[in-house]
Design a protein around this nucleic acid. Structure first.
Lengths: 230, 230
DNA sequence: ACCTGTGTTACGCGG
DNA sequence: CCGCGTAGCACAGGT
């Protein structure tokens, strides 16, 4: 990892356009070629460019002063750094193959756990299939109500927001077009559902269920038990 | 900005949970207190914590070896870095008040320009109001068709994706509930509209219009002309 | 390569 | 302060 501290101007054109006036910033270039420019605030870089960019170094005269130009080009994007003054340029050796992060508590885990424990969906359900394909894309869980026999399309979210309601509607609509499962209903299952989303869900007649907060612990013991059996 | 290079383990719990096994990484602490941990790949930090966290330094024994613990705490989040070995610790002076980025070509600019040039919406329209409040949130542009007198709710997007279709539907639905503007129609106006989105828009009977690609230039001369007049 | 959906999304704006 | 919508969103996964 290379860290260059410089008084610089920033010009980006591509997906949008941005400009940064002269200031002293940190330019970080990583082993894979990705660049990011940081001010002394927030984690997010001011500008950046992905790992397959082509870097070009050149010089330009501003009046009678020669300045360094660093350009980074990708398909339809260009980032130009006008280097007025370089204060330092350091290289640091980091692990070449960092194994990365192991994640836990993702939406995928939640989905998995609910597939194994369909009674946690807030009713008496049994799993038909996970990631069931519909004409409008895959629905997270397709389940059957053990009492009524009714088929339900379940959309699982960590945080359910407005678009989730219409998403379920599209799945239900697509499933009802085939008539393969009788009259299919929708259901939103989430760790958190926002007020406006509840409002719309009620308007659209889509019920929802909030998952118990200790699901991560339950999932953990669920996995441990399974391992014990095996 | 402080850059610490260390062989470390990472443990985060909060919105999700992540773990990073031992590796040499860069720990960046900024003036505002925000922290981010970087591997030598990609712009995005592996772990991070916002600017209002509380940092605690302590030590712990692993077997008979004493290691440093860096903890960063925020409301419901905790990031713990187990520092096995510190290779370097550098401080860099960056501008204290970087003026930040000036953005151009944002959705807001596009909306503004379309409000000033409603004929660019792909028909003979005149502006009624920008950010018109409906019961389902503010619609980007409310316009009238000069020929038919029909009122149209316009959703402006840089890139229109599936949720945009339902978004327009909700606005149209809300506007038609009031009966204040007669029978209101919807319209999607975007720089780019995805195939699946077109498919759904057609299914839902929502027309769409793709904005000319040179709108940024047109906007620029539009602003210049305006300045000239003033 | 494009499209779709998730993310500890972050960030800014309005209430 | 929370809720909502945008972002040069990035990134992984499927087709």
């Amino acid at each position: 990892m290379r860290v260059v501290i410089a008084d610089c101007e920033l010009d980006y054109t591509g997906r949008g356009d941005t400009r940064g006036e002269r200031a002293t910033r940190a330019i970080i270039i990583k082993a894979d070629g990705s660049v990011s420019i940081h001010s002394d605030k927030s984690n997010k870089p001011m500008n950046y460019m992905g790992d397959k960019n082509v870097m070009t170094e050149s010089t330009k005269y501003i009046g009678d002063k020669e300045v360094l130009l660093w350009q980074f080009d990708l398909r339809r994007e260009n980032l130009t750094i006008t280097m007025h003054q370089v204060f330092s340029d350091s290289k640091f050796a980091l692990s070449a193959n960092d194994s990365g992060l192991e994640r836990d508590g993702t939406e995928n885990h939640l989905q998995e756990w609910l597939a194994d424990n369909p009674h946690e969906l807030g009713g008496n359900y049994e799993l038909i299939q996970r990631e069931y394909q519909t004409g409008a894309g895959p629905v997270d869980l397709l389940v059957r109500d053990s009492m009524t026999g009714e088929v339900v399309a379940v959309e699982v979210k960590r945080v359910a927001m407005i678009p989730a309601v219409d998403q379920v509607k599209r799945y239900v609509e697509a499933l009802n077009e085939t008539e393969e499962h009788g009259v299919v209903k929708g259901l939103i299952v989430a760790l958190d559902i926002r007020p406006k989303t509840i409002e719309l869900a009620e308007k659209r007649g889509i019920p929802y269920h909030v998952v118990r907060t200790d699901w991560k612990d339950l999932r953990k013991s669920h996995i441990e038990q399974r391992t014990l059996v095996a």
